[in-house]
Computed example of a mutant assay.
Amino acid sequence: MTRRRILLAATALSLAGFSRAWAQGTPRRVRGTIAGLSGRDLTINTREGGTAAIRLAENFSVSALRRVELSSVAPGTYIGTAAEPGPDGVWRALEVLVFPEAMRGTGEGHFAWDLTPTSSMTNATVDSAVEGNDGRSLTLTARGQKVQVVVPADAPVVTPVPASIEDLRPGAQVFLIATPGPDGGLTAARVTVARDGVVPPM
């Protein structure tokens, strides 16, 4: 098994853990910039203006993101998309994450998301993709539920790629999902970090 496949498998396992945490209603999504890293203790200046102390799990993984073409989001692709409701009742994507095949099924479902006050997240398989005047219209199926999402041309479309602890530099923008422990401390199994100008959009 190649190093890339090992890292993607580790990412899939950590996201599966996030999915279980979602079911328990316990995770905290953290977005912000790195203030510092000491051993496995990560300090983040959050987008809300506070500071979060995160303990990275022993087997934590780091991923970055690579831009992909919107045209690559075709029927059969497994994606995650944060979206806001449009005036016509159709969801409008704020971003699209194209999952590698090894991560198919990760966090499947349609649920509330805190990127914006009204956003949702849909992790699902693309049933159909049609070009329209206002973007690419996707029909998604998640656990038997169909969701219609329009992806505007300016919405970021990305896919995860392996990264390393060396990418966790002060000032780098990050996204992670942390789980509170019995003592209230936060632990994360995976960090998504900005690299090569691609910022985590989720």
Rank of each mutant, 00 (worst) to 15 (best):
D154T: 15
A129E: 02
L70H: 04
A142E: 01
S19N: 10
N45I: 09
A21N: 09
S14E: 11
G135D: 00
M121T: 01
R66V: 13
A172W: 04
S164A: 14
A10N: 15
I79Y: 09
P156I: 05
L37T: 13
L65E: 03
V130E: 08
E108K: 08
A102P: 10
V191G: 08
A178F: 07
T118Y: 02
A53N: 08
E166F: 06
A189E: 06
D88C: 06
A142Y: 04
V130D: 02
P152K: 11
V174S: 09
M202V: 13
G25H: 02
T141Y: 02
L7V: 13
A52H: 10
T141K: 06
S164E: 13
V161A: 05
P152H: 09
G184S: 05
A16N: 14
R5N: 12
R195P: 00
G86L: 11
N59Q: 14
P152C: 10
G135F: 02
T43S: 12
L8F: 08
T2P: 01
D167T: 08
L13G: 12
A124P: 05
R67N: 11
T51N: 00
V151R: 07
G181T: 15
L65F: 09
S63W: 04
L168T: 03
I165K: 12
A102K: 07
T141S: 13
F175E: 10
P170G: 05
A155I: 08
R40Q: 12
G184V: 10
D41I: 15
L15P: 06
T159W: 07
G144V: 12
A129Q: 02
A188I: 14
R20P: 00
M121C: 00
A188T: 15
T141N: 12
P152G: 09
L70K: 01
P100C: 01
V98W: 01
T139I: 10
P160C: 12
R169Q: 12
Y78G: 01
D196C: 07
V161I: 14
V147A: 03
G17S: 14
T179Y: 12
A178H: 05
V147N: 04
V90D: 08
A178K: 04
H110I: 06
N45C: 08
V30C: 10
L176S: 05
T77M: 07
R28N: 06
P117C: 10
S119L: 09
Q173I: 03
P160N: 09
L140H: 03
R92F: 01
D127R: 12
T77F: 00
S164T: 15
M202E: 10
G80Y: 11
G49C: 04
V30G: 08
I165C: 03
R40E: 09
P201T: 02
G80R: 05
A172H: 11
S61Y: 00
A188F: 12
V68H: 03
L13I: 11
G32C: 09
P180F: 05
L7G: 04
